[in-house]
Design a protein around this nucleic acid. Structure first.
Lengths: 254, 254
DNA sequence: CAGTGGTCTAGACCACTAC
DNA sequence: TAGTGGTCTAGACCACTGT
C-alpha cells in the first residue's frame, strides 16, 4: 500500500466485476471534479493500491474510460483527465427520447398510425423477411419541446412481435416497450443521412414551408444476436435538427 | 499444442507488438474468407496454441477486432465472424481522400485560395487563439471522380504552421502534408451536420441549381495531445454526398 | 458434463518521458 | 536515473452454453 488507504476499495463480494466498480468510481471522481480536467490522475501502480486490485484490472477500467473519451494516456508521462470541451456532443446509441434529453429538450411523439400488413417486396428485402410476410408499421410524428421536428416510419417484422400493433406507445420509447415485452436488446444501428426537400403533407405536419430542406434518414437496428429487428425512415426538419459525430483514430488496448 | 502448428506464429523479434501481429493475421483470415462470415473461429485456447502466445495477448487482439465490428463474442458459445452486411458503411477518422476511396471514387481538390491573415474575433474564438492572431485559410473545391462535390474552408493556427500558406497541396491530402511537415498526429474530429440552401457563387462552383439542398458541415480536428489544430466549414452537395454512421450500444451493462 | 468466454492475480521486461 | 504506461506470461476460478 502506498500511503493512501483504499477508499472505495472494490468489493470482491459484489456481483459487479471489479474493473467495472473501479471504472464507475473513477468516472464519478472525474464527473464530480475530484479529478480536474487536464490534471494527471494517479499512476496505474497507485491506483492498484488505492482500489486494492491488480494492474490488469486497473488498465481494463482505464481503457473503458479512454474509449468514452474521459481520459487520455501518454506513454512515459501519465494519464490525464480530458478537457471537457473535447468530449461534448458525442453521440451514442440511444433512443430519440434520450437524444432529445441530452440536448435539454423534451421528446414527444404522436402516433399517426400503427398497423400490421403484408410487406411489399422492396420492404421485405430491406427487413430480410419474405415478401408478403407481416410487418408492423409505426408511423409517428416526433416532437421536441412541443413543436414537430420529424416524421418517422418504423417497420418491424410482425412474426417476431405478435400483437405489437395493439401497443400503446403513449409516453414511452418504442425500444423500452420492445425490451419489456419481447426482451429485445438494442445493440447496433446503422444510419444514412441525405438531404431532402419537404413538400405536401409532410411540410404541413412538420410546420415548415413547402420545399424546405430537411434530412432524410434511413436506419437499420440490430439486437445483440446481430439480428435486424427494425427499419426506419425519417424526415427531419433541417432547421431544428442536426447531426453531431465524433470520429476517433484507432485506439488499441486491453 | 493442439493438433495445429503455429502457422503465422507471431515473431517475438519483430518490432510490432505480438497482439498486433495476431490481430493483423486474424483480420487477414477474415477478409480473405479463410474464416467465413457467421462461422465460429477457433477458441481462445486454440488460438493461444496457433500463435504461440498467452491468452491475454489473444484476447487483446480479439478485442480490437470486436471494436472494429469484425467479430462477436458470445459467452459460453464461442466467437464468430460477423456477417459482412452488418459491418458495411462504418466510418472512421479519415481524410476526405480516404473516405472517397472507400466509396470507390477518386478524390480531387482544386485550391481556390490559400493565404495567411489575422483571425477575426469569432474565428479566433473557435480556434482558441487570440483575436488578430494569424490563421492560414485554405479554400478548396473538392471533387469526387472529376465532378464537384463540396466546398471546404479550413482554418489553421498560423503560429503552429509557419509557411503553410506556401504549401503545394496538389495531389496530396492536407493531413498527409501536416504530418510530414509538422509532425501532426490526427487523433479526433468533431463534426456537426446541418442542412443548407446552396445559392449564388457556391451553386455555380458546385454545379447545382440555385436553391438546392445541401449539407453544411463544421469540423474541429484535434491531435493526440488534445490540441485543436483545425476548424473547417464545408458545403456539400446534397444529391451526391451522404453521411453514414454506425451507432453501438455500450458493451457493459449490469 | 465439457467447453467457452469473463474476470483476475502477481509478477516481468520494455520504451518512453522527464529531470 | 526514476517513474510512467505498453506489452506479455502462466496460471486460476467463475458463469454461461450446449450435451
Amino acid at each position: 500500500m502506498a500511503g493512501q488507504t483504499p477508499i472505495h476499495a472494490a468489493s470482491k463480494t459484489s456481483l459487479l466485476p471489479l474493473y467495472y466498480q473501479v471504472e464507475r468510481d473513477m468516472r464519478q471522481r472525474i464527473e464530480s471534479g475530484a479529478w480536474q480536467a487536464g490534471q494527471q490522475i494517479p499512476s496505474e501502480k497507485e491506483l492498484c493500491a488505492l482500489y486494492d486490485v491488480s494492474r490488469i484490472t486497473i488498465r481494463q477500467a482505464i481503457s473503458a474510460l479512454v474509449d468514452e473519451g474521459l481520459i487520455v494516456r501518454e506513454r512515459g508521462r501519465g494519464s490525464f483527465v480530458r478537457s471537457p470541451v473535447i468530449t461534448a456532443g458525442a453521440r451514442g446509441l440511444t433512443s430519440f427520447s434520450d437524444e432529445m434529453a441530452a440536448l435539454g429538450m423534451r421528446a414527444g411523439a404522436r402516433v399517426l398510425s400503427i398497423r400490421r400488413e403484408p410487406a411489399p417486396p422492396e420492404l421485405a428485402e430491406r427487413l430480410r423477411i419474405g415478401p408478403g410476410d407481416p410487418v408492423v408499421v409505426v408511423h409517428r410524428l416526433r416532437y421536441a419541446d412541443e413543436s414537430p421536428i420529424g416524421l418517422q416510419t418504423a417497420y418491424l417484422p410482425g412474426a417476431r412481435f405478435p400483437a405489437l400493433e395493439q401497443a400503446s406507445l403513449a409516453g414511452r420509447s418504442l425500444y423500452a416497450y420492445l425490451q419489456e415485452q419481447y426482451g429485445v436488446e438494442l445493440a447496433e444501428a446503422h444510419e444514412t443521412f441525405s438531404t431532402t426537400t419537404i413538400t405536401g403533407e409532410d411540410a404541413r405536419l412538420l410546420n415548415v414551408p413547402e420545399g424546405a430542406c430537411g434530412f432524410h434518414v434511413e436506419r437499420l437496428t440490430y439486437d445483440q444476436k446481430q439480428e435486424l429487428f427494425e427499419f426506419v425512415t425519417s424526415t427531419m426538419r433541417g432547421d431544428r435538427y442536426q447531426v453531431q459525430l465524433v470520429l476517433r483514430a484507432n485506439r488499441r488496448e486491453l
